[in-house]
Design a protein around this nucleic acid. Sequence first.
DNA 1: CCTAAATGTCTATTTGTATAGACAACTAGT
DNA 2: ACTAGTTGTCTATACAAATAGACATTTAGG
Lengths: 240, 240
Amino acid sequence: MVSVGDGVARWRRVADEIRSAITDGTIVEMLPPEVDLAQRFGVNRHTVRRAKAALADDGLLRAERGRGTFVNAVPKRLVYSVGTRTRFSENMLRQSLEPSGRLIRSEQVAADRDKAELLKTKIGAPLHRLEKLSVADGMPLSRSICYFSVERFPAIIESYAETGSITQALRMCGVHDYRRGETRLTAERASVRDIELLNCAADAIMLISSALDIDLDGKPIQAIRTKFLADRMELVFGGS
Amino acid sequence: MVSVGDGVARWRRVADEIRSAITDGTIVEMLPPEVDLAQRFGVNRHTVRRAKAALADDGLLRAERGRGTFVNAVPKRLVYSVGTRTRFSENMLRQSLEPSGRLIRSEQVAADRDKAELLKTKIGAPLHRLEKLSVADGMPLSRSICYFSVERFPAIIESYAETGSITQALRMCGVHDYRRGETRLTAERASVRDIELLNCAADAIMLISSALDIDLDGKPIQAIRTKFLADRMELVFGGS
DNA sequence: CCTAAATGTCTATTTGTATAGACAACTAGT
DNA sequence: ACTAGTTGTCTATACAAATAGACATTTAGG
């Protein structure tokens, strides 16, 4: 039997509610006074102050004694368009951001059942496993792990290391165009590794996208699992 | 200055890491012993035990003294396909689940700038605001708020109350088919209201979809913002 | 039968979280 | 100058979280 606490401090909960009230426009310029907030959330004033301190620490708020508490900056999420042609660099450049990527690690692994099915290889077939970090304007945005068939793309690692771009590396391997197949989405709390790699808050949320890129004949190219920092990103599907 | 703690208990963090190790197949049938886990996560054995107690409480684990700890059931996420034609009931029926909806609240509000732009009405124009809860097999899955132009759909509320389905209500209003325009996705921690309505864990994560449905001429029908329980759902785009 | 390895239980201590109340310091308006 | 309203600081108390160590209980295997 688990005892009463749920493992999330109340000040953290309050901080999150205030933050989303700011991002979705419920709170515009000024925060309600601390006693009001305390009553609304059903907590002590000190708990509200703790929450506000955390938000102020993130540069979101500015409290002025005697006057009140003001919203410093409304954090805007970066938009990432997921279409049939999805390219990280294009997405960032469209928003005047300087994209860059960093290779965390690369290795060969054996295909398990899921990946074999996706990439249409045999179970146990060798796969390149590439772990990357995507950065825009110096801010880490996402972390991806992608898998390529070693048989089909023997030299993809070297090409990526050379160019720093998957799109270009694929071109060197003879794939001049590819498109996005299926994308599956869910969300989880950031793992300790996410936190250290992305340099984000300890309670950050990751938007997880599992996708398959295919060439123009429908043959699988790469299986990608990307974890986006949810509070810095917004994914857009369709419409454009 | 915020003092040291980050507002998320370590046992909660450990529990989450173990849970995702189970769902993504890293841990298959049996958990490593507590001392190993404690060392791996850099925490005390008692902290691991607290985490395991929480997971066992959710029915995910079963510990047997002297033998070890076993995975009880691998939680599988429900799949929700988002295509150009997205219907909740169809999605659930395809997985042999009994869909149902519950109207939480309906009211009229004035269009703010964002909604006016989306729905192509004037700022301040009256909108129906419908707050719904979607349930499959008795389990709450998501919570949505949708907006309709009162001018275009004066009787949508009554029709929805009668039929319990937006698709059918629209049909009664003369819209026999519609499709999904753009869908924007992000994620946030559940608010206190989410928790009470969806009857979920206090630290649940919500997958947030903001979308626009349009009729076959491209005219806007409804703006929808849905919050899905991320640990019960997976959204799928494209591919099918 | 004995041992190694695993989970379960107990006590104790330290740090973080939450509440409560009181009061100081500052601002804006009357 | 005064007052009402706001943020900032202090003390105190109770409970939860995290660590540490010791030992009991059960299982499986040699």
